[in-house]
Write a protein that binds this DNA or RNA. Structure first.
Length: 503
RNA sequence: GCCCCCGUCGUCUAGCGGCCCAGGACGCCGCCCUCUCACGGCGGUAGCGAGGGUUCGAAUCCCUUCGGGGGUACCA
């Protein structure tokens, strides 16, 4: 095998995700990365990351690093990219300006592109007039075939020109899409390919870079369908073979509009980490959007469907024909369920390490505990692991265990629901607990049941509620007797007595 | 306005002419377990947008219509 001029082996599948560093990393980027990567892994291809920073107005300095962090967090590793290099460097479009220039010159020479000096104001007026006349909007070619001197005598002239495509009447608008089959895309107008600031627009840069980087399959969002004819034209003019296209469905807000950071906090990737979602849960969830669950048929012909899957399983069974063309609504309900499920699957130590940052963030303790404190946290962890949907809920459960009796807050709603006999229950409980020698869950429960359930003849629910409030400060808590064991005899008795005195 | 894409339970989906008076999952509701809340177990609710065709037979094919979305930038 011989290598081509982009340093890649012919025939090898190469895909990429190409985000714009314009702010917080977008969940849509992770979605695209996931499907690109799954496909690449499925066929033994390469997955590249390219930064498309041609928009200098919306550019954000820290965006690129955040993107790396979030994709790493999700475990979606690329094979080539700006940070790790590769045979097609550089992978940042702002560093490739010299690369695009000869392509632009070639297009102008071939009369496929031309200079345009129209001001934004003139273009806006033109479009408004076209719309008013119920005509399709598009550049009117005022500048085509003119020199700067000739054009300068006309209205709406600006000194620095842009370069536009000269789109012919017979431009190709049909193409085959891996997900949608034959697609009839709209006829493009004379799209700008080189901006006044010398940067290429997306359309030129994407075609040039995809070619130079040996991209074989362009997997991107549905929003690009209508620009695909522009890209097809550029490939044709430049004498390049066009890649295969796969236009993914768009993730939607609850109101069905394209998912946006403004309408949906979950459009920001960092939000998931802050909320305490596990990366494997998010990946699993994303893989379920626009794609069926794992469906297997056993020897008997019995069909079972499974929603839970790892990335490797997803990649293993990946198939374009199964990708849906309808845009799924990004509804967190199923993600919450997945997250709780994955939390329960964590082994104890991993779970503890996962909740510590959230406890520290919320000030439950100043830093990661060790020694006896960690052992205590471990005992608490055992009680709360099945109770969390989000890791960020952990501090609420953990805090009462690390708070001194004097500082324990009793929630208003917990206090309000108490019945009249609460004080008597507490007094009786204290008396029953004082003689308990070995402070274990079994002994604690035995002593309390004998005294309060049998002695006072109360129903468990009625009897245990005031005790729970005294010990935890809340009406809903981890298991009561286990909690008392963790707190220790002295602390437990102090809390019971102190709460009784406050009634 | 113009162009394009899409349309099965509330949500994610299976279905690719008979196996479907439509299956699974989440959610929701009920019951069980139970010291609260979870977990777990069991059961239930709910859908082929509408109208025409084609066919012995349509969720599946065709047309129309309605609905939703995207594009229409010197943003990606």
């Amino acid at each position: 095998m011989t290598e081509n001029d982009s340093g890649t082996l012919p025939g090898t599948v190469r895909v990429r995700v190409a985000p714009s560093p314009t702010g917080d990393p977008h969940v849509g980027t992770a979605y695209m990365a996931l499907f690109n990567l799954a496909f690449a892994r499925n066929v033994g291809g390469r997955f590249l990351l390219r930064i498309e920073d041609t928009d200098r107005v919306r550019f954000r300095e820290d965006s690129e690093q955040q993107l790396y962090d979030m994709l790493h967090w999700l475990g979606l590793q690329w094979d080539e990219g700006p940070d790790i290099g590769g045979p097609c460097e550089p992978y940042r479009q702002s560093e490739r300006l010299e690369t695009y220039r000869p392509f632009v010159e070639q297009l102008i020479e071939q009369d496929n592109a031309y200079l345009c000096w129209c001001t934004p104001e003139r273009l806006t007026q033109m479009r408004e007039a076209q719309q008013k006349a119920k005509r399709p909007t598009g550049y009117d070619r005022l500048c085509y075939g003119k020199t700067a001197e000739q054009r300068a005598t006309l209205p709406g002239f600006s000194e620095t020109p842009v370069v536009r495509m000269l789109v012919p009447k017979n431009a190709p608008i049909r193409f085959t899409d891996l997900i949608r089959g034959e697609v009839n895309a709209p006829m493009p107008d004379d799209q700008v390919i080189l901006k006044a600031d010398g940067f290429p627009t997306y359309h030129l840069a994407v075609v040039v870079d995809d070619h130079l980087m040996g991209i074989t399959h362009v997997v991107r969002g549905e929003e690009w369908i209508s620009s695909t004819p522009k890209h097809l034209l550029l490939y044709r003019w430049l004498g390049l073979e066009a890649p295969v296209f796969a236009h993914m469905p768009l993730l939607r807000n609850t109101d069905k509009s394209k998912i946006s950071k403004r309408k949906n906090p979950a459009a920001r990737l960092t939000w998931f980490a802050e909320q305490g979602y596990l990366p494997q849960a998010l990946v699993n969830f994303l893989a379920l959007l626009g794609y069926p669950p794992v469906i297997t048929t056993d020897d008997e012909g019995v069909v079972t469907e499974r929603e839970l899957q790892t990335f490797d399983e997803f990649a293993e069974r990946f198939d374009w024909s199964k990708v849906s063309s309808a845009g799924p609504i990004f509804d967190l309900k199923k993600l919450d369920w997945l997250n709780g499920t994955y939390i329960r699957e964590l082994d104890r130590e991993t779970f503890i390490d996962a909740i510590i940052p959230f406890c520290v963030r919320d000030g439950v303790f100043p830093e990661a505990p060790d020694g006896a404190e960690r052992d205590k946290l471990s005992a608490i962890a055992e009680l709360i692991q099945t109770r969390l949907v989000l890791l960020s809920e952990a501090p609420g459960y953990v805090r009462p265990f690390f708070t001194a009796a004097a500082d324990l807050q009793i929630a208003d709603d917990a206090r309000a629901q108490l019945k009249d006999g609460a004080a008597e229950v507490l007094t009786t409980t204290v008396a029953a607990l004082e003689p308990v020698g070995e402070w274990t869950t079994v002994n604690i429960e035995g002593a309390i049941r004998a005294a309060v359930i049998d002695g006072l003849e109360l129903k468990p629910k009625v009897a245990f509620t005031p005790i729970r409030v005294a010990v935890s400060g809340v009406r809903i808590s981890p298991p009561l007797f286990e909690s008392m064991e963790i707190l220790g005899k002295d602390e437990t008795l102090t809390r019971l007595a102190s709460f009784r005195d406050s009634l």
